[in-house]
Design a protein around this nucleic acid. Structure first.
Lengths: 348, 348
DNA sequence: GCGCTTTACTGAAACGCTTCAGAAAGATCG
DNA sequence: CGATCTTTCTGAAGCGTTTCAGTAAAGCGC
């Protein structure tokens, strides 16, 4: 029995209020003694139409009294477009770095008067997901990682999305792309380890399926950095559990590695502990580099070297979205986000 | 210059397709040579009306050819209600435990045919936020932490939300409440430390503002557990930075504490490292307990004792939501989620 | 061939909002 | 005083769906 939900009897059972239907602008109009048009003009501060002060007040009072809240669907149906920016929520927890970026982005977009909505399409894949998003008729769709092909982009555009922006390591036909340079992350790590004199270099690749979109380019980056040198690259599958790390560490002598890029700080920390428990000393026997520059990485001993990743400022991405929405016909922009720098601490 | 966004010229500039207006069900009807009603019946598989197989096929083909995607706003406008469950996205990153819970919940709700939407209302507070949510006319609103008063609940209900469920440590009038027993977390930690013979007990309280909703009840829980004993409780404000932890650790001799509840594993780890750097030994000089049972807590030495928190299964919460939506008049349920158990490792 | 049911569909209304075109009433002007 | 302008407001259309009520055609029993 994994958990318990205990119902507590409520002390005061409030009389269920009669289910009045929700007030519409027509109700407001009736109460204020004006037309629906006037209500709309007043509540939206429409500048093209002048409404006298007394009327304005009556409308506002009526709206207040009824607790009127406009109906977003009706509004955007009439308007023919929305100010909604859809962001498929990643189904993999991606850590504090990313969620802070999301926050910043949302803030920036809301400044530009967009409404950011995170939409989880759990089971759906590919075009099915795109269809589901398209039903909401968002002004723009911001796709964080993989999971959307050119077909999906086409579906979204056909259904009126004025901008599709992808955020990942690959460009997608038809969409604006913000290329996050995951390869660069691997490249920086690989180059650093090589420069420290390491030659037999392992690369942790998480077994968790959702992380492949990150791990693949990072691995490629390490490979790229070492191409043409005498260094070798060994792929190290690792699940995020202590036992998996212990198993990997137990094979260490036979692997004969003198350095590891740990995919990110969390996996690196996990592996470091397992290695130390196996009697492998870091960095003497094996150097270790993580990525993401988490605070926790500084708490281990030796302190974890890491690749600091600079995500684009939310404000800039928000402006890209806004530009794209304003000018939907323009050719998709492709931006390269640079931001991998090595933070050298004690583990390498 | 915190980051760089480099624009890469696109190789192939695809000719901007003429902005055909997005196809509606009327277009599908025209192409298939049937009425809009028929299109609706076919595409929704309406069981009450029989449509012949050839007609069905023609409609489906037409829809496919045009790339028709229904308009959610129009649909829910007509229907008078939606299957949308709104979840205000917390603006504080709340760690892997919580985000896994969210995932599970979304999955469970989508099984019940709800659409889960996370909505960030960054700047807004209290009733303003409730208003913004109400505009979307969700079937239910699921409010994770604080930030919604009885007034907000009233606004939502008046605008047609059939269920408002709060998820936190306080009950809110008019809403179904799932009380997550943060006090229990503190209580368990406090009792454990007392049982281990500790009497001068510190409690870390994060300075990050968004975390107060958690830290307050946890602190109360520790106090509650120690009430009537000879133990003392000392509040230890701590920001999530190394310097803050170092400053706190430097004051350790004068504080004279023999135990600390670290709010959660992350803060506990931060503090543990600072204490060790200060020459304080854990657990001999000072015992330490975290919370959340993160994997990383097992990686430090000594291994971190922690309070394991069992969140409700997403499936059960989803069922609560569904029940509430089906029967909006019912008195709000209050459930108590029990789930704090101490995991004793080496740090206490 | 007549009434009846069944089948397969269609017309039109309604959901709540915005906005265009116009109207009532007063102000201004020649 | 009639014509014109300004101010302040209103009527009605329309956004894309769903669905109720209705209808034409066909089938059936007699």
């Amino acid at each position: 029995m994994p958990y318990v939900m205990v119902q507590i009897p409520n002390s005061a059972a409030p009389a269920a209020p009669q289910p009045r239907s929700v007030p519409t602008s027509a109700d407001v109009a009736r109460l204020a003694g004006v037309s629906r048009a006037t209500v709309s003009y007043v509540l939206n501060n429409t500048s093209a139409v002048r409404i006298s002060e007394p009327t304005r007040r009556r409308v506002h009072e009526a709206a207040e009294e009824l607790g009127y809240v406009p109906h977003a669907a009706a509004r955007s149906l009439r308007a023919g477009h929305s100010r909604m920016v859809l962001m498929p929520a990643p189904n993999v927890p991606i850590g504090p770095l990313y969620s802070q970026f999301i926050n910043e982005l949302q803030w920036a977009l809301s400044r530009l008067d967009y409404t950011v909505v995170q939409y989880a399409s759990v089971g759906l894949r590919g075009d099915e997901a795109a269809r589901a998003w398209a039903e909401l008729r968002p002004a723009a769709v911001l796709v964080p990682v993989g999971g959307l092909g050119p077909q999906g982009v086409a579906v979204l555009k056909r259904s009126g999305a004025r901008a599709v922006v992808t955020l990942g390591s690959e460009r997608i036909e038809g969409a604006h792309s913000l290329l996050i340079d995951h390869e660069g992350v691997g490249r920086v790590a690989g180059a650093h380890l090589y420069a420290r004199g390491r030659r037999r270099i392992g690369v942790v690749v998480p077994e968790e399926p959702g992380l492949k979109v990150f791990s693949k380019p990072r691995l490629d980056g390490v490979r790229g950095a070492l191409e043409g040198t005498d260094a070798t690259v060994t792929v190290l599958p690792l699940a995020y559990e202590e036992e998996s790390a212990a198993r990997l560490a137990a094979r260490w002598p036979e692997l004969g590695l003198d350095a590891v890029f740990g995919f990110n700080d969390e996996y690196a920390m996990l592996l470091m502990r397992a290695l130390q428990d196996e009697g492998v000393t870091v960095p003497d026997d094996t150097a270790l580099v993580g990525a993401d520059d988490l605070i926790l990485g500084r708490l281990l001993r030796p302190r974890l070297s890491t690749v600091h990743i600079e995500l684009p400022a939310g404000r800039d991405l928000a402006e890209l979205v806004d530009r794209a929405v304003r000018n939907p016909g323009a050719t998709p922009e492709t931006h390269h986000v640079l931001g991998a720098t090595l933070v050298h601490r004690d583990s390498s």
